[in-house]
Design a protein around this nucleic acid. Structure first.
Lengths: 212, 212
DNA sequence: CCTACCGATCGGTAGG
DNA sequence: CCTACCGATCGGTAGG
């Protein structure tokens, strides 16, 4: 009885704080993006959060599970946000413009999430990799469909919707490499620059004159 | 005397083969591209070449030196090849077209070199990183200058030569992610697709009608 | 170029 | 959530 009560008190002082899981996620994300998955140790992550290494295993099954959680949750958030961003838009021109604004804005705001989802796919074990791959294809398909519709109805020009979708996504994602807050161009300028380049790339004048 | 002669013979059987350095380079390149620098051990590289781990240190000062050699030699080769590809071309349109053909073709042909130079910058120690960074800036400046000239003389339209150069390089480099030999589109088709997308992105009709 | 070894560090676990 | 520990593996070196 006495023993039991003492144990209970000790556990109360030392056991899971509610926000530790989120702090682990955040610091793991930051460190993985900075140095790469393989170059970050569980001890590095624990130290950044202020716990001991073993404590991580109260929240995640292991290092691999932590990476998978970061990548899958990111992709699901991204796709939900995209759906919302395009929900009010109709017609290929308006939808393409909305896609670019969303994609570039999101990538400016969450560069670490995006970077990891792109770079660490090869470090994911097959199960997680398949899931992330499928989510990525769904995302790409949204842009491909917009482009295909524009090519079909004559609003856009281009060689191939699939190639153009991949080309444009790579182009826009690249913003994470060079954009820095407080630089020569602000967030809004950068987004509008990509809108112009993208619309021109499908053969549309920008600013839009009197098309479609 | 006897000892000396014996030692000489043993060394002759076991000492540096002339091509081992290149084989180490090649296998290190392949493995770094496949798994990432931090996830590849010196033993992995040695095994791929068919020597023991310690033997690598006869050819490179260490793992870091091996990575630096791969990246710097790649960047220097890339820039020399670019200069040659543009040497016969004058005027922003012809030079832009030649740049795209060169860049996409080179990236299709040497995806591992390119991938490492992009991905492993953060694993390079400051000295090598500075050198690679400077070479990358030189490369980017070539495209930026072409774009700036076209914007100045009215051949191109766009928001900003620096942003457009980065956007286009990211777009073209992305070909390494999806292009596969024997796929739906051949090397030539892919290159011409990127040419069209790029020219349209700077406001030019393609195929080129009667401009400039 | 090999064998044999070094100290350091890794992901993960047991027991409390 | 901590302390203490496990076997495995790491980059690099000595000596031949």
């Amino acid at each position: 009885m006495n023993d039991h009560s003492l144990t209970g008190e000790l556990l109360l002082l030392k056991t899971r704080r509610p926000d530790t899981r989120n702090e682990l996620r955040r610091e793991a994300l930051r460190l993985f993006a900075e140095r790469g998955y393989a170059a970050v140790s569980m001890r590095d992550i624990a130290e950044a959060v202020g716990v001991r290494q073993g404590a991580i295993y109260n929240h995640f099954a292991g290092k691999q599970d932590l990476l998978a959680a970061l990548m899958i949750e990111h992709m699901e958030t991204l796709i939900l946000a995209l759906d919302e961003a395009l929900s009010g838009e109709s017609g290929p021109i308006a939808r393409l413009q909305a896609f670019v604004r969303f994609h570039v804005g999101y990538h400016i705001d969450k560069p670490d999430d995006v970077f990891i989802a792109y770079m660490e796919l090869r470090n994911l074990e097959p199960e997680g990799r398949e899931r992330v791959h499928a989510l990525r294809n769904r995302y790409e398909a949204v842009l491909r469909d917009v482009l295909a519709e524009g090519l079909r109805n004559g609003a856009f020009r281009g060689p191939d919707a699939a190639v153009q979708a991949r080309a444009l996504i790579a182009m826009m994602t690249g913003v994470t490499v060079w954009y820095r807050e407080g630089g020569r161009l602000g967030r809004r300028d950068v987004i509008e620059s990509y809108v112009q380049i993208t619309l021109q790339s499908v053969g549309i004048d920008y600013p839009i004159g009197g098309e479609d």
